[in-house]
Design a protein around this nucleic acid. Structure first.
Length: 936
RNA sequence: GCGAGAGUGGCGGAAUUGGCAGACGCGCUAGAUUUAGGAUCUAGUGGCCUUAGGUCGUGCAGGUUCGAUUCCUGUCUCUCGCACCA
């Protein structure tokens, strides 16, 4: 079998690596450590997607490369197996989730092994392993046991939480309640995103445009008591610590925007009885700004306290607690109607409907800065979940307020002087203050500071930081997740009395109960509530409890898996402290950009809590992050036809509101027709039909999807081309971070490259596997040596920069060169096999063996290049006249400036062109080029 | 609308302290070899002009420079993210 046959050699080496535990990582690093992590996959029922091996191959190349350079490499893999996708698949296939999950994991494991990744499989974990989620529950208890000390900006044990005297006086129960309110894991009755189709609530981050990110189902807002994690407490640190991370700016920006820190002020507007205004002001002057707003004030948040003189009305959200109190009898009907309308609107409808609507409450608030009385309105453009759910409206300096004011004819006062040529409506830029009494003339920044100081002096306001980031809704009403290690104390009747406690550490894990029926039923009671009483109502210390029946969201397990990989079998701790210290942080983390906010923010948050509590030693978990780009389906050409069968140009096709294709001019329905490459041709800037060259067609690649039928299955590629070809192709397609279309003929191309590599070493015509007769034990020629050293140099540089596509191109050049060489020195080929091995490990192990080695090449030293050998003795120099290329000369590469200029002038053609002309200037860059500037 | 990134042959892409545009691969053309080949090897392959040669050419329009894919200004298109966050 002298032909290159991946189906034979690939399994052979996979078994070899497995049996010899070639890629087992040491318990502790020896010498320099490198922790390289892939985002572990959700083992869905569809198996591996070609997108997975993209990032996985990239990290595998880095790992194999660094091992050969002597680093201790930790490169683990596992499965994120809890959560909706796994559970939905279980329901669809009517199997218990654990069973279907294990089956899916087996498929994924087989597929990953088939691709020859150098994982330490002894460290494999699944988030669904009881032995794993035991520690997920343990970390939850750490969160439960922690409060955030604002002064120290640090999470601390709950026992250290200072209890205010008035609370302490009310007894134990009150103290406990006070503590519960301050824990990082707490229960809250809040408006949540309830998705009836999925049968669970969702985090804000999981809702896109009012629909579930997974499955695209409608989401409603209903009030429910839910577990929340106080991620907002860490907002500043999550933002500030981004600075020192080697992440792309775009991901950092996305996180910053998601956190959405803004600075401004909280201001209280008096809404009590007019006659008590004086006494209220006197009280505030004496006692200062109150910790909580009572019902005599409307507390607002603004980022523009400088515009306070321009506040002409107030707006509160329809869900604001003071709505009833502020609504006068006259307005009651209208307000009630508006509230119901707003409540009935889904988030999606609210977002689509941007026309400002609202209702006057009938009452007025007093502007603290000038005692003006201004009307209070209700509108859904103010969100209850941000700030205080109430705003002061300053139409002169805010576009939204301007629009509202125009609709309802409310007054507009400019308090910032717009520039002379300003033609817009609200002016939001900088400028001198006007109509603002003691602020007049000040710039925005100064005016802000002065206003805040003025308010603070009188106890009417204070500076305040707000975040778009909301606390993390952490409970789900599904079966397939980690149970909460929480117990609710119950009374004689079995009803919870509001007292909660943690399951003792020694009683962990809390396992999932067996349930006959675990399917969601469209109501918010979790399925775990159907468990038998033995699970549901445990006794502890003589007290009867009801177990928490919510489960944790899918993100929980992935928040800390990188720590467990360091010490996956530890039975006494989530990770051994010493091991954690020697392997952390993750040096390189590669995964899809779809996790830019959710997973990466959540994991960072947990990590910081563990850091504060002394369980980990690094501030951040992932030092360097690289996002692989998406792989699209093959390029497709589409033409468009009207109902009567006539073609129309792609430029004349658009989508209507229902997302259907219609013609731009008459709105007729349009059908998209898939075209063959032979039916289209290039014309001007795009493609047209061959038969009708005035009809433009669309050419683009689409995201792979089952419905489009353009999904590429890695199993098929490995069967037809081999794993090495798949790996190589995915790296050769283009830059790792770019979005790029799949091309089957491209896979064919890299397969041919491997065929050539095989043939320069193996004798294809022999009966048995033996070296090609041209492979000889001779001293390489200078040219051959230069080829090798230049290749080593280029490949080494490229892999450090993770520019794998160009590294492969260089190795192709090497192969093309040696295909033509009649004598191929063995020493050179050995070095080349080592260079290629991180990319195509199976074929290289096979060739390495054939070249006379017994053991794996995985720990062979990485080839070194000698700068001296990479230099060419002669070089081709372009000669320009007035910047236009006129001739090329070949000269010694070390020619001096003067010599090069003389050589250029000596060239026959250049001499002729320069004859009789006046040379104004000559630019000579030794080793690069010569340019003569002459008078025309 | 706001923010980020990207526009280079028929296609994927290469080239940056500014210095030969199109490396490498696909596709295509021709030749060799083969019973045959969708195998292999060799050569060619940006457009236009009639060849030698010339000329244009990195989304578009300008600018800086001896020289611009690279720097600057404006503009268009696409992709991604955010989207009433006061």
């Amino acid at each position: 079998m002298p032909r290159y046959n991946p189906t034979e050699i690939e399994p052979k080496w996979q078994i070899f690596w497995d049996e010899n535990k070639t890629f087992r990582a040491p318990e502790f690093p020896q010498g320099d450590k490198l922790y390289v992590l892939d985002m572990f996959p959700y083992p869905s029922g569809d198996g591996l997607h070609v997108g997975h091996p993209e990032g996985y191959t990239a990290t595998d190349i880095v790992c194999r490369f660094e091992r050969m350079r002597g680093k201790s490499v930790l490169h683990p893999m596992g499965f994120d197996a809890f959560g909706l996708p796994a559970e939905e698949f279980a329901i669809k296939t009517n199997t218990p989730p654990r069973e279907s999950t294990e089956k899916n994991i087996a498929t994924f494991r087989r597929q990953l092994k088939m691709l020859g990744f150098s994982y330490d499989w002894d460290r494999e974990i699944a988030t669904t392993d009881v032995d794993y989620f035991r520690w997920t529950q343990w970390i939850f208890l750490v969160l439960f046991d922690t409060w955030f000390d604002d002064a120290q900006q640090k999470g601390r044990p709950i026992r250290d939480l200072p209890i205010p005297v008035d609370v302490a006086q009310q007894g134990n129960r009150a103290v406990q309640q006070y503590q519960d309110e301050h824990r990082l894991a707490y229960q809250a009755n809040a408006l949540v995103n309830w998705c009836p189709n999925l049968g669970t609530v969702l985090a804000n981050e999981e809702v896109i445009d009012g629909r579930s990110e997974r499955g695209d189902h409608p989401v409603e807002r209903i009030p429910l008591k839910q577990w929340m994690l106080r991620i907002t407490a860490y907002g500043d640190r999550l933002e500030n610590d981004l600075v020192n991370l080697d992440w792309s700016e775009s991901i950092k920006t996305m996180q910053r925007e998601w956190i959405g820190r803004s600075t401004g002020a909280e201001v209280d507007f008096f809404v009590g009885q007019q006659e008590s205004l004086d006494s209220w002001e006197a009280d505030r002057l004496q006692k200062g700004f109150s910790r909580k707003a009572n019902d005599t004030v409307l507390r607002i948040y603004t980022t523009r306290p400088d515009t306070l003189f321009g506040a002409t009305y107030m707006v509160i959200a329809p869900e604001h607690p003071l709505v009833d109190q502020l609504t006068t009898a006259d307005q009651k009907h209208a307000v009630e109607e508006y509230r119901q309308l707003a409540a009935a609107k889904s988030d999606r409808e609210r977002q689509e409907d941007r026309e400002k609507t609202g209702v006057f409450t009938g009452s007025y608030a007093v502007n603290p800065i000038n005692r003006t009385s201004i009307p209070i309105w209700i509108s859904d453009y103010v969100l209850i979940s941000y700030g205080t759910g109430a705003i002061m409206a300053v139409p002169g300096q805010d576009n939204r307020d301007w629009e509202f004011a125009e609709v309802f004819g409310l007054p507009i006062i400019r308090t910032v002087q717009p520039p002379k040529d300003f033609e817009g409506q609200a002016y939001t830029g900088d400028g001198p203050a006007m109509n603002s009494d003691f602020l007049d003339g000040l710039g925005v920044a100064e005016a802000k500071a002065k206003t805040i100081a003025w308010l603070a002096d009188r106890g009417l306001g204070q500076s305040k930081v707000n975040y778009k980031l909301r606390d993390w809704l952490f409970s789900r009403q599904r079966f397939w997740g980690e149970p909460f290690p929480i117990l609710h104390e119950v009374d004689e009747q079995g009803q919870p009395n509001g007292v909660i406690r943690a399951v003792p550490e020694s009683d962990l894990p809390v396992e999932l109960p067996f349930l006959e029926d675990y399917k969601p039923h469209g109501r918010p009671e979790p399925p775990l509530a159907k468990a038998d009483d033995g699970w549901h109502y445990p006794m502890l210390d003589g007290q009867r409890y009801r177990r928490e029946t919510n489960t944790m969201p899918q993100w929980a397990g992935s928040c800390w898996y990188y720590l467990r990989f360091i010490d996956p079998k530890n039975q006494t701790a989530f990770v051994d402290a010493e091991k954690e210290q020697s392997w952390m942080p993750v040096d390189l983390y590669v995964g899809g950009a779809e996790h830019a906010v959710l997973h990466l923010l959540y994991a960072r948050f947990w990590h910081k809590v563990l850091f504060d509590r002394g369980y980990v030693t690094t501030r951040e978990p992932f030092q360097r992050l690289v996002n692989q780009g998406m792989i699209l389906g093959e390029m497709e050409y589409s033409g468009f036809k009207l109902p009567d069968g006539t073609w129309i140009s792609a430029s004349n096709v658009t989508k209507n509101v229902d997302r259907e294709l219609v013609s731009k001019d008459h709105g007729q329905p349009v059908k998209s027709v898939a075209l063959q490459e032979t039916q289209v041709t290039k014309k001007d800037e795009g493609f047209v039909l061959v038969d009708h060259d005035h009809i433009r067609v669309e050419s683009r690649a689409f995201k792979m999807s089952k419905s489009r039928g353009n999904v590429v299955n890695p199993d098929d590629i490995v069967r037809d081309y081999g794993a090495d070809s798949l790996r190589l192709y995915e790296m050769f397609m283009g830059p790792l971070e770019a979005t790029k279309p799949w091309s089957m003929s491209g896979v064919d191309g890299v397969k041919k490259f491997l065929d050539r590599v095989w043939r320069i070493i193996v004798d294809e015509r022999a009966e048995t596997l033996c070296l090609n007769p041209s492979v000889v034990d001779t001293e390489p020629t200078d040219v051959q040596k230069r080829m090798l050293h230049k290749t080593i140099q280029a490949v080494t540089n490229d892999v450090s920069k993770m520019e794998f596509n160009t590294a492969i191109a260089r190795m192709m050049e090497f192969t093309n060169f040696f295909t033509k060489e009649a004598q191929r020195p063995k020493s050179i080929l050995k070095q080349f096999v080592l260079l290629l091995s991180p990319y195509a490990p199976h074929i290289c192990e096979e060739l390495w063996q054939l070249l006379g080695h017994q053991d794996t090449l995985a720990y062979e030293p990485w080839p070194e290049f000698d700068e001296a050998f990479t230099r060419e003795d002669s070089v081709e120099i372009p000669i320009q006249i007035n910047g236009k290329l006129k001739a090329k000369i070949r000269v010694a590469s070390d020619l001096s400036k003067d010599q090069l200029e003389k050589a250029a002038q000596a060239d026959e053609k250049i001499g002729a062109l320069l004859a009789g002309k006046e040379i104004v200037k000559t630019i000579v860059v030794p080793g690069r080029m010569v340019n003569f500037v002459i008078k025309p």
